[in-house]
């Protein structure tokens, strides 16, 4: 290699290295320091030890936020992802000219920013006049007068319904791509051997899509735990009795509405720890269930 060849990669990487140093490593280290300080806006601070963490972990609003976010994440994984897989399997015919169009339609909600989704669905959930309430009334003769966004018991179901609309198609794209990996010969061989479809699903399809499924589950978990903008805009804040308060909402409120950046940083660490723990657990489970 010529000297210019040796210098070139460092030169090409320098923007990344410089920006990462200033806007990632420095704030990252600062997040550790900040979490142990009491602050009042960006200007003043005083060392308080673990008090920020103790405050957060014993704050009942944090408990509410944690459970709300966890219910949302569970619904994403247990309801939304199977739906995405179901639609992907429905769409996965070999020759299908309409496949592309359905894929576009199912994906289209993902283009709409969460704030805009919140603005639109706040009106779709209106009692008496909202499109969703009318739809439910027409379908199951119930729901026209339900106050989805001001009845604390209905706030989380409403958020989950909106998240279905936003992400079912997005996750379907991944499953659809994964289904291309399913070995058709293997499916046929299993069929000849008399394996029923349920059996075929678990022995042929599931192993083939497993790497992608693990990826999608982990991405959904990480994304779910960072939910904030959609409920914040749809509920004009955090909902009645904090019924729509999420962990990031709690972080945002503490750091920027109350101005307590130290506690905000501590919440950030707690959130990072939660996400890290769940992703690791999911990866371990995925590895543990390896058949061969």
């Amino acid at each position: 290699m010529t000297p210019s060849n040796r210098r070139a990669p460092w030169f090409f990487l320098s923007p990344y290295l410089l920006l990462t140093l200033i806007f990632f490593i420095y704030p990252f280290l600062n997040a550790i320091i900040l979490a142990f300080h009491q602050t009042n806006g960006p200007k003043s601070r005083a060392f308080v030890g673990w008090r920020n963490f103790i405050f957060v972990l014993s704050d009942s609003d944090f408990h509410t936020a944690f459970w709300n976010t966890t219910i949302y994440a569970l619904a994403s994984i247990c309801v939304q992802l199977p739906l995405s897989l179901g639609f992907a399997m429905l769409l996965n015919a070999k020759k299908d000219n309409l496949k592309g169009i359905f894929r576009l339609i199912l994906f289209s909600p993902h283009l709409v920013g969460q704030v805009f989704v919140g603005i639109i669905f706040a009106l779709l959930f209106m009692p008496r006049h909202g499109l969703f309430n009318r739809f439910l009334q027409g379908l199951i003769f119930w729901g026209l007068d339900q106050e989805w966004l001001s009845n604390p018991a209905l706030v989380m179901p409403a958020l989950i319904i909106v998240s279905m609309w936003m992400y079912v198609g997005f996750n379907m794209i991944y499953f659809l791509a994964a289904l291309q990996n399913v070995d058709q010969e293997l499916t046929e061989a299993a069929m000849i051997d008399g394996a029923n479809a349920w059996h075929r699903f678990w022995t042929v399809t599931v192993p083939a899509i497993k790497p992608v499924a693990v990826f999608v589950v982990i991405m959904s978990t990480i994304g779910s735990y960072q939910l904030f903008e959609m409920p914040y805009s749809m509920l004009r804040g955090y909902g009645p009795k904090n019924a729509g308060l999420t962990i990031v909402g709690y972080l945002y409120r503490t750091a920027f509405e109350t101005g307590d950046l130290g506690t905000g940083a501590a919440i950030g660490w707690v959130l990072a720890l939660i996400i890290f723990t769940f992703s690791m657990a999911q990866m371990a489970i995925a590895r543990g269930t390896e058949i061969d």
Binding site: F28, Y252, G268
Partner: peptide, 8 residues
């Protein structure tokens, strides 16, 4: 998660 760094 990027939001960890929001405050710092």
């Amino acid at each position: 998660p990027g939001l960890l760094l929001l405050a710092p």
